[in-house]
């Protein structure tokens, strides 16, 4: 779907700084762009600032006493940092939060319907059909209470719920969390299909660098609140540092975890 050369930029994050509770500086200048029709991966370890970046974009930060203090967030040429999440959903940007966050006491279908809160009745019906074609498993379980479905089904439910809003861009936070490798593969495949067939652009925050870089078109690597590396996914995959620190591979194949631990060389990009 991503056509190199003549891509249109959907989302532009310029050098943003985020502070929680007026004191804790979490992002120290993050810039990134999300092209239309692409899958962009946002990689990094725990506490690198992936989730905060996504929440800054979707404006869910306010509910957690976080605040964008510097920089700008531009979606389709408009500044969106001061909008509320509902406005942003209407503009086509929706976030699937880390840890799935299904409405546990609602059935799977009710969860999906809630996702279409900003849509008309006809669009809701259409959306439901679309979600069920991509996630046949949700159709089977549509009358179960979401809280009692498996982790994989909940993740599908959360993505499906976001799709119901007919978004142009989905901010997907850690879809692999707590899932078996096979399921991770399944979910990323569906993401890829959605990207190719429905033209939905994705910004995916992910710790599982390996999977993310296989499915994404381009990637950013965050470390303690800064972007330390960016580029097309294929290039990042081949980068020796990324291999070493994120994929667990040295020049001579897979490394033992023990060696990596004692091996505390400064990363090349920090020097």
């Amino acid at each position: 779907m991503l056509d190199a050369g003549k891509t249109e930029t959907l989302l532009e994050v310029n050098n943003i700084e985020v502070i929680y509770n007026h004191v804790i500086l979490v992002l120290k200048g993050v810039s990134l762009t999300v092209p239309k029709g692409g899958i962009t991966a946002l990689l990094g370890g725990n506490g690198a600032g992936k989730t905060t970046t996504l929440k800054a974009i979707s404006n869910l930060l306010q509910a957690e006493r976080g605040e964008v203090t510097k920089g700008s967030i531009i979606y389709r040429g408009d500044h969106v940092a001061d909008l509320n999440p509902a406005d942003l959903v209407r503009r086509g940007v929706i976030q699937v939060m880390e840890g799935r966050h299904c409405f546990e006491h609602l059935t799977v279908e009710e969860n999906l319907l809630t996702g279409a809160y900003t849509r008309s009745k006809a669009e809701t019906k259409e959306g439901l059909e679309m979600v069920y074609t991509y996630f046949p498993r949700l159709k089977e379980r549509r009358t179960s209470q979401a809280g009692y479905t498996s982790g994989g089904e909940q993740q599908m439910c959360a993505i499906g719920r976001a799709l119901m809003a007919r978004p142009e861009t989905i901010l997907l936070d850690e879809p692999s969390m707590g899932l078996a490798p096979q399921l991770v593969e399944e979910i990323f495949t569906i993401v890829k299909n959605l990207n190719e067939q429905e033209g939905v652009s994705f910004l995916i925050a992910e710790q599982n660098t390996n999977v993310a870089l296989r499915f994404a078109h381009q990637g950013y690597i965050l470390e303690s609140g800064r972007v330390v590396m960016e580029g097309p996914a294929a290039e990042l995959r081949e980068n020796p540092d990324v291999k070493e620190f994120y994929l667990g591979m040295g020049d001579e194949g897979r490394k033992s975890f023990r060696d990596t631990r004692s091996y505390r060389r400064r990363k090349r990009w920090l020097s």
Binding site: V89, R90, T114
Partner: peptide
């Protein structure tokens, strides 16, 4: 009911 269950998630879908 969605808000009752998970206010943040409700916020995230545009409620």
């Amino acid at each position: 009911r969605a808000v009752a269950d998970d206010p943040t998630a409700a916020l995230s879908v545009g409620i």
